[in-house]
Design a protein around this nucleic acid. Structure first.
Lengths: 230, 230
DNA sequence: CTCGAATAGTTTACACTGTTTACAGTTTAT
DNA sequence: ATAAACTGTAAACAGTGTAAACTATTCGAG
């Protein structure tokens, strides 16, 4: 017997807690997430939740992990809409997926990449999950690089030795690509994240009413041109 | 008599509240800013603070405004370390100032560009102050453009009409530069903000221990090269 | 200088929050 | 059937922001 009745109920409750939490985050933002409100909506008392999560931070960590895998899955889906040989398409698909996921899940994105909530410190177990999403980006660029499809002048720009040293050190810990690729990936990530978060925090609203999509599209094409993706 | 005794004390108290608030934000982060804690440290009771700020949000707004002007001043100082004819220098100086200010005032930066705290909605009176900091960036690029010192191919990339239309509409509201300049400025802002916030939120720590400075420097030079600043 | 008004601050109170402890009820395994 | 494990509640503690009532101080005008 794989699963007793109680175990099943337990998993369902854990799920219901998270669903209720996301619902409230969607309605009122991540910062005002309240255990008591969750319990209230679930028809139970607040201390009961402590049977499922050690404390508020543990719940937040679980939410962040779920959000990260949803996010990463979306990046992969966007990438895989194009064949493995179409490096430009895969890059474009992934970038679009990034921004679209953020637009559809603004609160979730802020939870991942915004100011840590209420003294919430990045939990230990979160590292690997967070890196997985970066690996998608790095992979797209890395595979293009390996295939010789990155022909922009940026490749020529010599990395300062201080950076090269650090990136090379990472290779001994399993980093699969060269320093140039890592630098490019971090650069692209910064750009996409910058556009996304400026948009989500309403700093672009004064300049672009409905044209944010066009702005992002344009900048994606610019990145492709700069990298020299083929 | 320019200022009565009571008026002087009042201004001093307002100042002391803000100083105390910044002290606590620096120690424990912006999210856990507490009126009661501020009052406690000042040797008074919490409701007393309401004589000076309508509520917690009003205090936050005041803090954000102060932070913005400190930030903007720093950008201007960084820019003005180079003569008006040295557009590249001014751009570089401003970018460096941006990142350095954020590194020295991480909590302040997060307050400006991070997730809005506790249902705190961007206050009305904040718009102009926020835009002033963007105008510095736009001005540096705009002046270079006017002087014909932007010779990169990006200038050639044709803006989609949907974007062009929006930027041109802004010109009737006092926007001093062309659409190309605005697009470039928004792009550069996205990049710097992206690097800065990824760094501040510790997402770069896994890749770059002490080398963040080198990373940012490198990307600044890349932007200069891409824009074709001379 | 005196008196009424404005201001500054305290006390008290309310409605929230996360969390702990002690206890009761239910389910499971032996 | 019984003991152990688990799930939940009730009560309580220490925080929080904020409102109302009240007191003490300071100010400007007569």
């Amino acid at each position: 017997m794989a699963q007793t009745r109680r175990e099943r109920l337990r998993l369902e409750t854990i799920e219901e807690i998270k669903i209720t939490a996301w619902k409230q985050i969607g309605e009122q933002g991540a910062a005002s997430l309240s255990l008591r409100a969750i319990a209230r909506e679930m028809g139970m008392t607040a201390p009961g939740l402590y049977r499922y999560y050690k404390d508020r931070d543990a719940l937040v960590t679980a939410l962040v992990m779920d959000a990260f895998s949803s996010f990463t899955n979306r990046l992969e889906t966007g990438r895989d809409a194009y064949p493995v040989t179409d490096h430009t398409g895969r890059f474009r698909g992934m970038c679009r997926a990034y921004f679209q996921w953020a637009m559809e899940n603004p609160q979730r994105y802020m939870l991942l990449f915004g100011t840590p909530i209420q003294g919430y410190l990045f939990a230990e177990e979160l590292g690997p999950v967070a890196q997985r999403s970066f690996l998608v980006l790095q992979g797209v660029i890395g595979e293009a690089f390996v295939a010789g499809k990155i022909k922009g002048e940026v490749v020529g720009l010599k990395l300062p030795t201080s950076l090269k040293v650090q990136y090379e050190a990472l290779r001994k810990f399993g980093m699969p690509y060269t320093g140039t690729v890592t630098q490019l990936a971090l650069s692209v990530w910064s750009m996409i994240h910058g556009m996304t978060s400026l948009y989500l925090y309403n700093y672009l609203a004064g300049f672009l009413q409905e044209g944010v999509g066009a702005f992002v599209e344009f900048e994606i094409e610019k990145m492709i041109a700069i990298i020299g993706l083929e």
